[in-house]
Design a protein around this nucleic acid. Sequence first.
DNA 1: GTGAAAGCGCTAACAT
DNA 2: ATGTTAGCGCTTTCAC
Lengths: 355, 355
Amino acid sequence: MNPKTGRSTIRQVASAAGVSTQTVSRVINGRPDVSADTRRRVQTVIDELDFRPSALARSLISQRSYTLGVVTSGLRHTGPSRTLSGITESASEAGYALLLEELPRFDMDDPTSIFHALLARHVDGVIWAVPEVGNNRSWSARLPEGLQLPIVYLTMEPRQNISVVSINNYMGGRLAMAHLIEQGYRYIGHITGPLDWWEARQRMAAWKDAIQEAGMDACAECWAEGNWSSASGAAAAKKLFDRFPKIDSIFVGNDQMALGVLSATPDIGSKAAERLGIVGFDNIPESAYFRPALTTVQQDQFNVGKVAVEEITRMIDSSWQGQEPTEPKSIMLSPSLIVRSSSRRLQNGEGEISK
Amino acid sequence: MNPKTGRSTIRQVASAAGVSTQTVSRVINGRPDVSADTRRRVQTVIDELDFRPSALARSLISQRSYTLGVVTSGLRHTGPSRTLSGITESASEAGYALLLEELPRFDMDDPTSIFHALLARHVDGVIWAVPEVGNNRSWSARLPEGLQLPIVYLTMEPRQNISVVSINNYMGGRLAMAHLIEQGYRYIGHITGPLDWWEARQRMAAWKDAIQEAGMDACAECWAEGNWSSASGAAAAKKLFDRFPKIDSIFVGNDQMALGVLSATPDIGSKAAERLGIVGFDNIPESAYFRPALTTVQQDQFNVGKVAVEEITRMIDSSWQGQEPTEPKSIMLSPSLIVRSSSRRLQNGEGEISK
DNA sequence: GTGAAAGCGCTAACAT
DNA sequence: ATGTTAGCGCTTTCAC
């Protein structure tokens, strides 16, 4: 036992068992070429000394750490933390440890220091779990050629030559719009997230395209920008009602802003506001208990994390087998629509329908 | 450059600069005993080769990794993820990397495998950021003596000989109750979180003590157990109204269950239900936009994470300086009350008051 | 001010 | 089936 670290070494085990360190190494790695007798003897000493091999020393010599770098941002939001949770679950199953970095801001355009920190600790791969905001991805195209590091990017516009896992936000927006139109709404507004966010732009594009395809030109300008917060949703709703009194429904960029809209409608005081059709995005746990219960687009962010780990481990394994790096590929996961009362012209109960 | 890892070594730098590895080591560690000239020459080569020292090799020899183990659970909930966010921010400032583990369940009574994984990677300390549930802390008293590992526990009942950082949940409950009583409510019920949670029991104890001290014996049995979810809050509210029609207010164990109560009151259909006073716990961002806006107890979980990092780094530093381990201490952080409309007998507007 | 030798804890490659 | 030698990338002596 090293008195400073409380750790025993392979050498202590070896000498206590009367064998070489190499034999101990063979035992702890489950190699076949050890006699049953020796193995038993060594294992006994290992248990007695509570010896556990240093992953550090192993990483150093094998040049493989079984550690993944995870870069996230905005953990206080449900999206990033659910994704992180998916990552921890899958990584643990796959036998990888996780080195976590959280960016203080979403829009960091120079990731050099982050990569240095991760590379210094020999991570086998990196999951860049920061949503695309502004041009916080421009650097991905000009990473050094020599960088032999598998990277999977999350929640961004697919690009050439990199691996991406995202939820199809455009599709989510189309689901929301198709539902509102089917319900008979004819003057559909939109409250966007901050438009430097890729996800917000995708949802808005879906709204715009659906409006156009349905020939609802009258509402083409009927939108306002929010910042994901309930306060901004309430403010945007008031602005929309001011400028477009005929509005009969709103596709809102996320559930928090939709809650802001719900809280603002009584103050607006018009009948239209009372009957307003609303669809949100995210399906946060609270949204089923809003009054009225919120129709929303569900995205499985936990699964984004799981898929990201599958991808990165695949990339690591294949590069480790000396193969050419695998073709980078983009994976788009599909959201689904959860119908509740906030979007029903016929207010028939509170049941939920998922499509 | 090692073609496999894309990494250059100290030896390559040394030979390119025509010095020994020792001199390079002195330069990268900012030691004074290098001539200005040599230092400049070595630094140039370092930049050219984009050399960055391996933290792994350094950790191995110095027996110090500047890495913290963080064990969390339930990241999809706002509490744990906000705490984690506080940890990432402080750790980054303090120059520590973070090795993250998420337990699949809150009630894990044998942490051995987790500690093994962290110790194998030579973490300098561990932050156990899992709330106390059931007897998932009983092991803390019987950790091996020889374990020279600083540990800070979060969100648990203070105990002898260990370091704890928690929010004072009892105090939070008393704040909520004092406010309701001051507002003139006289029949105050309680919806608890799951009672195997320490936090839930603390909040309940505060309710019980306040009831007793105020001489409100009539409501002493007027409580029901929930499971933190909105659904359980709604169910508990109906049960309470059934059994105690005179109830005029409820202290609810968290904001999500309080939302469930709000969603259920219209269905109950009594006048008492309409005027029900409600106080929640947590101050989730949505609660200001509930209808009515929710009075609640705010707890700064982000700060719990920050304080935990301060504590663990202090413990690490002092053990590193060869001193006796510092006295374990318990830190209790104070919550505060956010008053909104859900608890005002006089419904005078929506302003917020924090005390 | 600089370098040589030894070693952190482990494993790969080659013995025997 | 087991041991020996060398070395992963760095730092700590202790020379000079």
